[in-house]
Design a binder for these strands. Sequence first.
DNA 1: TTGTAGGCGTTATCAC
DNA 2: GTGATAACGCCTACAA
Lengths: 321, 321
Amino acid sequence: MQDIARKAGVSSATVSRVINQSGYVSSETRKKVEAAIQQMDYVPNSQAVSLKTGSSKTLGIVASNFSDTMMVLVRSFTLAAQQEGYTVTFYITDEDKQKELDVLEMLRGKRLDGIFLLIRLNDWSAIEPYAKYGPIVTWQRVDSNHIASVYMDQYHAYTLGLEHLYASGCRSIVNLYSNSHGLNTKSRIKAYEDFCTRHLLPVHSADLFMGLNTSRDGERVAQWWLEQSVKPDAFMTSSDSVAAGLVTQAQRLGCHLPEDFSVIGFDNIEISRLLDISTIDYPVAKQAKNAFALIFHQLTNREVFLEPLDFQLISRKTTKN
Amino acid sequence: MQDIARKAGVSSATVSRVINQSGYVSSETRKKVEAAIQQMDYVPNSQAVSLKTGSSKTLGIVASNFSDTMMVLVRSFTLAAQQEGYTVTFYITDEDKQKELDVLEMLRGKRLDGIFLLIRLNDWSAIEPYAKYGPIVTWQRVDSNHIASVYMDQYHAYTLGLEHLYASGCRSIVNLYSNSHGLNTKSRIKAYEDFCTRHLLPVHSADLFMGLNTSRDGERVAQWWLEQSVKPDAFMTSSDSVAAGLVTQAQRLGCHLPEDFSVIGFDNIEISRLLDISTIDYPVAKQAKNAFALIFHQLTNREVFLEPLDFQLISRKTTKN
DNA sequence: TTGTAGGCGTTATCAC
DNA sequence: GTGATAACGCCTACAA
């Protein structure tokens, strides 16, 4: 910067003003400075800027693993952030609690301005203290005054799916849950229990079908179904990936859907459209967009627009009617 | 840092030594300093460190858009980088040449230590000059002394697929190419032409099937096939995504594979396994790992191990035999 | 083994 | 309008 200041015959302060379009600078000197910048092929050192301003213009997105749904989140969040000049760094904690804490530390270390936490590993009590170093927004539901969430209650969305199955004649529905400790799962279990009570149906235990996340998991469930003497007539799944595995494996095993059993996915990502799987359209991309908006708001105090979150059932070919 | 130096009764230099485990420091003072760090809950400002050291310990991964294959690359690259203490930032250029240049500028601006470029938008001549500011490794093939590549020639892999189709009786093969300007596509066209010459088959024009990247594109091809009076009996695709769209739409339209026509995907990602699509297992994850290794090597001069790259045909149910 | 001090490349507060 | 100059928080010769 000194070099170009010298070349333009001004001081580095003026160069700074030109670059940041701040303060007064005559259009004449501005021209000179800009010319010098061009000639010397100068580019500001962003580390120095960050050190001075105290902001890295970088946001972190943290996930414990990788799934198609998360990719949608990453994509949408990144796009929104780029729009406002933020850069997004992606961290895979790989089920390692320490790694999650490491990322949180980066908030303190000024490496990150904010964090979008998809799936947490540590207790909220361990995460919450970091909120004072920068905005943390989570995808999962959380009870905290310091951590915002783009969470959307799954109770009603899930109920919608269950009622759709009931209306099409299903009376023995099995629920495939993902992580057992999440509040989303709790909501779903509650929705299922209420549903059973409402229709005087027997409630089956939830424990058997926990921790199902991938298409491989779904495939195993198809196998399981075949081996049962008393077979359920429908599956509510936690994600389209699981549903996709279930559906394709069932077809491989000679089953016909929805005659043999019905399946409802969750999230409405590409694969469910491809495979004609009925699913709940859950506004994942909008959640990510809102996550950025919330972080941006906390960072800048600027007004932001939050997309309304809604869901709907998309009836395709793995459910009757 | 001054604060904790004061608290420990030493100078900031000593604190720095303790933190970086560099230079001499008696175990006694080290204890004191560490205690102070604990108590004051101190964490170094990474921007200041970066400014001083000239390295941000951050790598960029640049893609023009999002596809399943790229997600595999991102995942594998990120994991490898995290292993060595690097952080990975993800940039979507969204087909915008300027955005790509912006990322390249970050290399100059010291925001990025290195770049893994998946799909380039600008001419190599515009990209190459940036290599002097930091390592650039590309996924695509490139002829440059300054830009390394984890590219793997697709000629032989593609030929393998074509010969498999020929052996199973296909004589009228249509190639679905992705981007028309890439060297990969050129290799594939060459492979196809040589294949035709070898077997005395007529060569069809390549122009018709360029720019096919997504499952939607694949679906359109299925529709196209149905409308032809003289129908080809096989498709070689540029990715499993395209193949997946083609296969599912064909089934929707009442076609039977591989009786009506054969399909071979590319990359062997999850969806091809799910849909039983024959494909070429292409070592995408290894390429990403190597990309990091190459960058790491240029950055640190340390010895690195490069995974050998190989491919194979995975025969599933969209090809005969 | 430890301390002093200069500088990394900016931004921002003053004077002028 | 513009120019000194003091931080920002850290690392690292060089001295002691």
